[in-house]
Write a protein that binds this DNA or RNA. Structure first.
Lengths: 208, 208
DNA sequence: CCTACCGATCGGTAGG
DNA sequence: CCTACCGATCGGTAGG
């Protein structure tokens, strides 16, 4: 009896298939395109050319895929506010820390666009989603604190309440996930510049 | 055999149950809380204290419930840009029409909050959703046109491209659905004022 | 507005 | 012994 094929007898460890990270990237893409509830593990398997069981080799459950995606986004955003908190020790104004946090947020949104997009759409349908919402609220609260501090410094106009200003400002930042595409006209730095200019100086020309 | 109960034998026309509008309101609420795909017709029935079949008495399908909600939001937003288009005939600057469109959008978002929230989360998972996305893109294009016209008038700063400014501006407006609640601290007029001030004049105090 | 169902598909797991 | 994966099927639930 002949051997099946010389190449299949070569010694090697494992198959040259997908690793955990590649499966996660595709899962996040699908979750964003069709929604988490609207995506079945079978859909993801078909997309990758695998069986459902192969997915479960990489992740113990569909919820773990979501968890990994949300953690990626939350960890990156947490790093932004941690940087601002550390900058508070090193002197400098609250206004400067706020502007830096806005820029940092834009960069995180662009660099982790799929994961952050998923995070911003989470509604709390499961315990994992509710925990993600709690972490997100803590981040939002820290950003609002930066706006309040800048207002107390006298660096912001007084006719918009700081908490309202914070919501509008980071609402504008977060709205990037609705249209930003890496292959598009603008890069992260250009967008961060436009956002900070619009937010702090406004669309109207100065000195009119 | 005794009759079940005297009150159930009383003659009357129809039941004092829910009408189409009431079923739609609850459906929109549920769709927003758990997502359209995450909400079953059975969930909606339970919420209303009815059976699934009772829902199908009011609407021929789950998709028709979604359609009615999206039409409500799209019709209201279309009215805003139609008003701006009519104002173009009657003189006045593009800048004034843009500011009016921003205010009008905020008012529509606040008055039709649940329906607009649903619209802004549509991903195109069905033909009805894709048609809604097409209508929404036409509205966004009209709003971007207003920004371009204001820029050509010289009413906007030149260091932010008009299409980018339009995305950021209406991204900020649309982000209202993430936090605005009717019972909250601010009413529609106050929010519209804050949005237009921030967008056109910026957060920094003037004359520094 | 209900009871009784349908075709299909869900997330997840078995042995190999 | 490991990594990566298959064919088949589990008990339940979806929209209609």
């Amino acid at each position: 009896m002949p051997r099946p094929s010389p190449t299949t007898t070569a010694a090697r460890r494992g198959r040259p298939g997908y690793d955990q990270e590649a499966v996660l990237r595709r899962a996040i893409d699908l979750f964003n395109r069709r929604g988490y509830d609207g995506t079945s593990v079978g859909d993801l398997a078909r997309e990758l050319g695998l069986t459902k069981s192969a997915i479960y080799h990489h992740f113990p459950s569909k919820a773990h895929l979501l968890q990994a995606a949300l953690d990626e986004a939350l960890d990156a955003l947490t790093a932004v506010i941690d940087t601002a908190a550390r900058a508070e020790q090193g002197g400098g104004t609250a206004y400067e820390r706020l502007e830096e946090a806005v820029r940092g947020s834009v960069v995180v949104l662009v660099e982790h666009l799929p994961a952050v997009t998923l995070l911003l759409r989470v509604r709390g349908n499961s315990e994992a989603e509710q925990e993600a919402l709690r972490r997100r609220r803590r981040i939002d609260a820290a950003l609002a604190g930066l706006v309040r501090a800048a207002a107390q410094e006298g660096a912001l106009r007084t006719d918009i309440p700081p908490d309202l200003a914070a919501r509008l400002l980071f609402g504008m930042v977060n709205s990037l996930v609705e249209w930003y595409r890496p292959e598009g006209r603008y890069d992260a730095a250009a967008i961060a510049e436009a956002v900070t200019t619009l937010a702090f100086d406004g669309l109207a020309p100065r000195g009119e």
